[in-house]
Design a protein around this nucleic acid. Structure first.
Length: 377
RNA sequence: GGGCCCGUGGUGUAGUUUGGUUAACAUAUCUGAUUGUCGAUCAGAAGAUCGCGAGUUCAAAUCUCGUCGGGCCCG
């Protein structure tokens, strides 16, 4: 068993656990900064270590297209390529094919798509994705799935579930035939917003048996309530003794809520994307540092934050950097935001350990506003 | 001394020949969106009594005269 469940909160469904991988142990719940192109945009592996991240997420689709597998193979894997000796999870590319490739043809065989970079044509099959991820050498790997869009009619959702299950079986089989690099293969649940399809998908995927289970097909354009409905519809069918990964989620308050539903793993581009676009997270909410009111603000982004950026730079300075299009601005705000997420999960784990997660959740949600904050924040 | 060109939101321009809805576009500014990546993009807002004055006209950024400012050419 690679996952050890240490504790389940008595008032919520929050869990504390340890996930063991080829590149180290991780306490759950944890957050994975997204490093699509073998980099968390704007941050080096050194930065991530400094802020205490134990894991990064990277991406099969992007790395396969660029730099290409020959390069990664030459380095011996993604860890060596990006000089990151901690844990890596790679997404399969199912979502990217869904979100980036204009021209794509899905069939039971796989998905044929055109590169968003140069238009070249490629075919991803479940087997091929397993091979690619094996070469990448990431510690946790996701199988190719059929990510249903939103809105999605029932027929399309049914097909997404059927195909995702079929692909999951093929992935597992292919995975078994590849060199053992100590990788953990996860299963992905689909089913859109249909309760019975979520249940069906969860039963089928867990029936196949994986090292962990992911809720996919969320954060694809649905409303937040619907997203949580999909979580509710899926969670009862996930086995306790395996890690649960909520793909692509979410805003800080959504993470705090989802932990209370029993989710163990998160990833989202929000801290880095929002950082590049000039939004910084604080425990009171998000400030859009680009706003004119911060022009002469001498305070750090978040007065409760201990990160390098908050120790050294003011809101007014960071605003200037972002407005001037300086790379340092993108980098510093991204640094703060990723640190914010990492620290948020540290505090969440601490609260679960102390048996006070329910209070933590209540306090956090009471203090945190989702609408952008003004100067008073 | 003579001749010619140009003055339109913060900036750069279009519209003037042929007068006719609410003066357009880009950029900058302001606000918002962004969830298995996007230094992308999208949405919304504010901003010009068209250098100034007079005249012609039902109606003037547009035509006429004067004037101020900037530029160019000739002497």
């Amino acid at each position: 068993m690679n996952f050890q469940l240490l504790k389940t909160d008595h008032k919520t469904k929050a869990r504390l656990g340890i996930l063991t991988t080829a590149h180290g142990k991780l306490e759950t719940p944890f957050f994975m900064p997204v490093g699509t192109n073998a980099t968390v945009k704007g941050l080096s592996s050194l930065d991530l270590k400094e802020m205490g991240s134990g894991i990064v997420l990277s991406n099969t689709y992007h790395l396969y297209l660029r730099p290409g597998m020959e390069v990664i193979k030459h380095y011996g894997g993604l860890h060596e390529f990006m000089n990151w000796d901690r844990v890596i999870l790679t997404d399969s590319g199912g979502y990217q094919v869904f979100s980036l490739s204009k021209l794509r043809k899905m069939s039971d065989q796989g998905v044929e798509f055109q590169s968003h970079i140069d238009g070249s044509r490629h075919l991803f099959t479940p087997e091929k994705v397993m091979e690619i991820e094996n070469v990448l050498g990431s510690d946790m790997i996701m199988p190719l799935d059929d990510c249903a869009p939103f809105p999605c009619d029932r027929e399309m959702a049914e097909e997404s579930v059927r195909r995702t299950t079929q692909w999951a079986m093929r992935s597992k089989e292919a995975f078994a035939g590849l060199p053992d690099r100590g990788q953990l293969l996860f299963g992905i649940i689909q089913g859109s917003t249909y309760a019975d399809l979520r249940e069906l998908s969860a039963r089928q995927i867990t029936g196949i048996g994986f090292s962990g289970y992911a809720i996919g097909g969320v954060s694809v354009g649905e409303s937040v309530p619907l997203m949580f409905t999909a979580i509710d519809q899926t969670m009862p069918y996930l086995p306790e003794n395996y890690p649960r990964y909520l793909m692509g989620i979410g805003l800080p308050d959504q993470i705090v809520r989802a932990v209370g539903e029993g989710i163990d793993m998160f990833d989202t581009v929000i801290p880095t994307r929002y950082g590049r676009h000039g939004s910084a997270f604080t425990r009171k909410g998000r400030i859009i540092i680009l706003n004119a009111e911060f022009t002469k603000d001498l305070r750090p982004l978040d007065e409760q934050c201990g990160c390098q950026v908050c120790q050294n730079f003011s809101r007014g300075y960071l605003r200037h950097l972002i407005k001037a299009g300086e790379i340092l601005g993108l980098r510093l705000v991204s640094y703060h935001n990723v640190h914010f997420y990492i620290q948020l999960l540290v505090d969440i784990r601490k609260a679960i350990k102390a048996g006070s997660f329910a209070e933590f959740q209540k306090d956090f949600l009471a203090a945190y506003r989702n609408e952008p904050l003004n100067t008073d924040g």
